[in-house]
Design a protein around this nucleic acid. Structure first.
Lengths: 217, 217
DNA sequence: AATAAGAGTGAGTAATCACTCATTTTGTGA
DNA sequence: TCACAAAATGAGTGATTACTCACTCTTATT
């Protein structure tokens, strides 16, 4: 519950002073983009669902693409935040504590679990549209390489030195860990969200799977 | 090398008697769909790249969507095939051999590795468009539940009974295994294809990760 | 109450969309 | 060589697209 809701934040008149109509536009755009994709969403449809004239959209956003970017960009920042803002994670990084690998993975999973759970439509848009918009790819790559990867490498190497995990290449360990976590979240929230999930149990299994998969023997 | 190239097969005048122009259309459509997505691809652009009049497309495919389906459908079949056609996999299923878990995973990974490697554009289209076309989702779900899942369950339970792997729920084991393999392939071929991959080595690590992650202790 | 500025409007625009169809071209068997 | 059917054509269709702009409305300050 530490993270705020992105949609709220995206529209909150507190941060940037959005007019009520502008907020409605963002809300409608997020909904429809997630439903049918950016390319097959028309500005007239967004206007209709937002209860706004079509011209109002273009008063606030020069192009349809600018509207997309203004929706997707904040997500990417939020995606990076926990890696340099979360208290616990920073503790693990800073302290010479190499005992709580389980705790770290657990924290990481739950962290991302709540993030995705609260922002399913936005995550959906991010995943879908990254494939086709080079600018989004570049933005994401830059953020990942600068903010996320270095921190990740730090921890992994610490645990490697402490001989808690296997001596795989650091990149490989990161890849295996991330795909397992992301794989769970994508399966849980995007592919089979209607399955009767026992989330706590499933996360427990996933943590064990990662820990044993990487455990030094 | 046991699998044929899907694009070739899709267009091969051998199987279905496609006109040369029709083959060109399919080829062009696959290229552009993969590049910019189905929704932002115009039939005029397909016709232009195929060196064909726009009307020719609609002689062979009633609608643009029918063209998409005729491209995506064969892939889904091919995706299911190895689970009931591959010799080795069937051997593992039938024999009372519960020793070669490693071999099974290895076979599975390499199998899917070559499949994706040969059909990157098609896989890209499949992943991208499934999100927005319910018919494709249904087709895929049906195929998966009927052809893939039962076989998968068989093996997992066999290995569980033989106490080779942990007593997690069968669905959980399948999920963890598949997301790890798919995660590798997506990372390898779609997200960071330009990375200097040592495929054999990386696959070796991935196999170990899965085996240790599931190993009964 | 007057004024100014930004917010909101919606009819209008040229471009592009998927798709049609009357006509021409091509390949094939007699 | 002819005839015929299938293949291919491309100008033409109405609908829809993202976006513009001259105008009106709202709100806050004086």
């Amino acid at each position: 519950m530490e993270e705020e809701d992105l949609i709220d934040e995206l529209m909150g008149a507190a941060e940037k002073d959005l007019t009520p109509k502008q907020a409605k536009i963002l809300q409608a755009a997020v909904e429809i983009f997630a439903e049918k994709g950016y390319a097959s969403t028309s500005t007239s449809e967004i206007a209709k669902r937002a209860g706004v004239a079509e011209g109002t959209i273009f008063r606030h956003y020069k192009t349809k693409k600018e509207l997309l970017i203004s929706i997707v960009s904040p997500i990417m920042l939020k995606f990076a935040v926990p890696f340099f803002a979360d208290k616990f994670l920073n503790d693990v990084f800073k302290e010479e504590n190499t005992e709580n690998l389980d705790q770290l993975i657990k924290k990481l999973i739950y962290n991302r679990y709540y993030f995705v759970k609260k922002n399913i439509p936005l995550v959906k848009i991010l995943l879908q549209e990254m494939a086709f918009h080079a600018e989004l790819q570049d933005k994401f790559k830059q953020m990942f390489v600068e903010k996320v990867l270095p921190r990740f490498k730090e921890v992994v190497e610490k645990f490697k030195v402490a001989e808690q995990i296997k001596d795989y290449p650091t990149e490989t360990i990161i890849r295996l860990t991330m795909t397992t976590i992301i794989g769970f979240l994508v399966t849980r929230f995007l592919i089979i969200p209607d399955y009767n999930w026992d989330d706590e149990q499933e996360i427990e299994y996933t943590i064990e799977f990662i820990r044993n998969g990487l455990k030094n023997t």
